[in-house]
Design a binder for these strands. Structure first.
Lengths: 374, 374
DNA sequence: ACGGTTCCCGCAATCGTTCCCGGGAACGCG
DNA sequence: CGCGTTCCCGGGAACGATTGCGGGAACCGT
């Protein structure tokens, strides 16, 4: 569109192999060159003085404005080089009203799932000149809201959110106050909030998984997943229900929505297995839950695949390298982050409207699923 | 000399191309606080006008300056509340010369090791009011340098670095140019660069691991670890050498320093095992390397613990839940990040001197280590 | 009553940019 | 020669805060 936002026009870096010390460009400086650093960065004002032109001219040269003669450009650029001038980002931000930075709120960066999303997002943002601010909400809706406000006060240009709760009123209220564009990651909020979103369609993967288990003969299946106040938890339960509804076999389903923590995975698995008619297959809705489930199974001396069939969500090295390898409902998490960033940039730069992008999920069968022993 | 625009009191009629709606939200308009429309954020100027005091007084009230009467404070605070004023972070940053933000450069956030470090650092920084900017260098020294310069131009107050290389001249040069304090995470640079550091003492863990393997009877041990241009790689090799030197048994050591990627782990393991006198034990120097090693072992049909003993570094769920569980040289990575942030804050706020903090490593034996079959 | 404090408050100068405006110089044309 | 264009450039007002300085008013002591 009309606004090219490239702050660097003449700002060449050129840190060539000159003396590493001081480089105090001005001869009349009079400062102690002995100090290894502490050289205050030059301002546009100083460049203007050295080139003997007006500040505005320096600005024009550097921003590629047409009203600049060749002679002028020469003089300014020479001064810029000699002073090693580079524009002050803060002043530019203040003046232009944009910070070229986006805030990312997520539950916990140490979760590989989130980390990969961040990885994808950061790469895209970086290549567009944006930088990424990160805050962990520790799965606490109150912290979510707090961080969003914090980012807002920091004047980020946009935000990417992976909320702890889609229903918490305080969170919703806070989101609605946000000025810049917002992109949700695998979350859904009411349309009137005007947020973009990149979500996974969790149904195909989950449906295939359930079909697979039923085909193998399982008639009692437990689904341990995250909170129903988050999209993945809801959709997974719905998908499983849908399959069981349309299959003729009568299958006992045990739904155990809770949280995404290892502790909950452990507890939920324990609870499911303690039942008098214990499930012959368990679906764990996330890598953290999987860890908990595996601990419980190990604890009880139950072998994966033979005693209990197991499916997990989101591929991690553990699921592939486990013995036996664990069937997985997988998705491209890095792409999830990438698309989130692209949606955000689209609204930031391209002026796009809020939009929801849907990404696929696939079921990958592995030996952890086998016919139940009867 | 141009048209002198008459200094009419109150008439802030800037010829700055802003929307016509600017600055008109004063006096009579202030009642619609609940408008859903994009309500421009109030400035200190507007607060001052509403309270009918000088801007400087507003600033004094808000910053807790002593020269403020009770009446003044009242009026200002009322206006602040009515306008829902909150200070502009950018303007404050520009004026104060600090951004309350720190940059973190690391190889790859999707590595759980790094992610946990970031988790710890972010929590500490957050509680001090700082925010964290994140950039992935993808293990590329050139990107390291580039990101450091980028952060520098963004005027972060300090930086936390987990460099790809401790020896790359360009990186060193760039680090030496950094104005604010720098904290290294598990890396070491020449003292004259003035960087703080939090590092692990990798020797005790590694020494115990090697001792354990030798005690079990292993006489040919392979160490697959990262680049020797990074502290962990160097120290681990040294530690292993030290143990073998002081033990009377003659042990064949195969050192395979390379990188921390899964691909390298896979290749290095393949190479080690292809040897005519193949090692009976392998030490993998990181969670990514472990994955590669496990893939190769699986590929060759070698069972962990029985055919080949295995030790890994940095505990991850995989090592605990693997069958058999994998012995680990562990350390507290979250604490690593926490301490890094504390070191940085100490220099930022407390005015501390650069310092190096050393954290321990421990060896946790598990069934993946067993006597070699002879 | 008067000099000296103390207590507050406003003025105005920054911080480092961006960008609108007005105007000088050079040029073209009738 | 006068006038309209075009091309550049400098001046200066923002952006939104912080802060040193100066001075008016009240207060105090003698």
């Amino acid at each position: 569109m009309g606004a090219p936002n490239d702050p660097r026009a003449g700002g060449r870096e050129g840190h060539d192999g000159h003396g590493p010390a001081s480089t105090s460009a001005r001869a009349l400086d009079g400062s102690h060159a002995a100090g290894t650093a502490a050289r205050r960065r030059a301002s546009m004002r100083e460049v203007a003085d050295m080139a003997d032109v007006a500040i505005s001219s320096v600005s024009r040269v550097l921003s590629g404005h047409p009203d600049v003669s060749t002679a002028m450009r020469e003089r300014v650029l020479t001064a810029v080089r000699r002073l090693e001038y580079e524009p002050d980002f803060l002043a530019q931000s203040l003046r232009r009203g944009q910070t070229l930075s986006v805030g990312f709120v997520l539950a916990d960066i140490s979760n590989p799932l989130m980390a990969e999303i961040v990885l994808g997002a950061e790469a895209v943002l970086r290549s567009a000149g944006y930088s990424l601010l990160l805050m962990n909400s520790e799965n606490d809706a109150a912290l979510d809201a707090q961080h969003i406000r914090f980012f807002q006060s920091r004047r980020v240009d946009g935000m990417i959110l992976s909320l702890a709760s889609e229903t918490d009123p305080a969170t919703l209220d806070t989101v609605s106050q946000v000025e810049g564009p917002v992109v949700l990651v695998d979350r859904q909020l009411p349309d009137h909030l005007g947020a973009s979103a990149v979500i996974n369609d969790h149904r195909p993967g989950m449906e295939a998984a359930v079909e697979h288990l039923v085909d193998l003969g399982h008639r009692r299946i437990a689904l341990i997943t995250g909170s129903p106040s988050q999209l993945p938890g809801r959709e997974r339960m719905e998908a499983m229900r849908a399959v069981l509804r349309r299959r003729s076999e009568s299958v006992d389903a045990v739904y155990l929505p809770g949280s995404f923590s290892t502790e909950y995975g452990e507890a939920a698995a324990r609870q499911a297995l303690a039942s008098d008619r214990r499930p012959t297959a368990i679906i764990a809705g996330g890598n953290q839950l999987l860890i908990g489930v595996l601990r419980t199974l190990q604890d009880r001396g139950l072998r994966v695949g033979t005693d209990v069939s197991l499916v997990t969500c989101d591929d991690v090295p553990l699921s592939e390298l486990h013995e036996p390898p664990i069937a997985t409902i997988e998705r491209d998490t890095v792409a999830l982050g990438r698309v989130a960033a692209e949606l955000l940039l689209g609204r930031l730069i391209g002026g796009d409207e809020p939009r929801t992008e849907v990404m696929p999920t696939r079921f990958v069968p592995r030996p952890s699923c086998a016919p139940p022993v009867s």
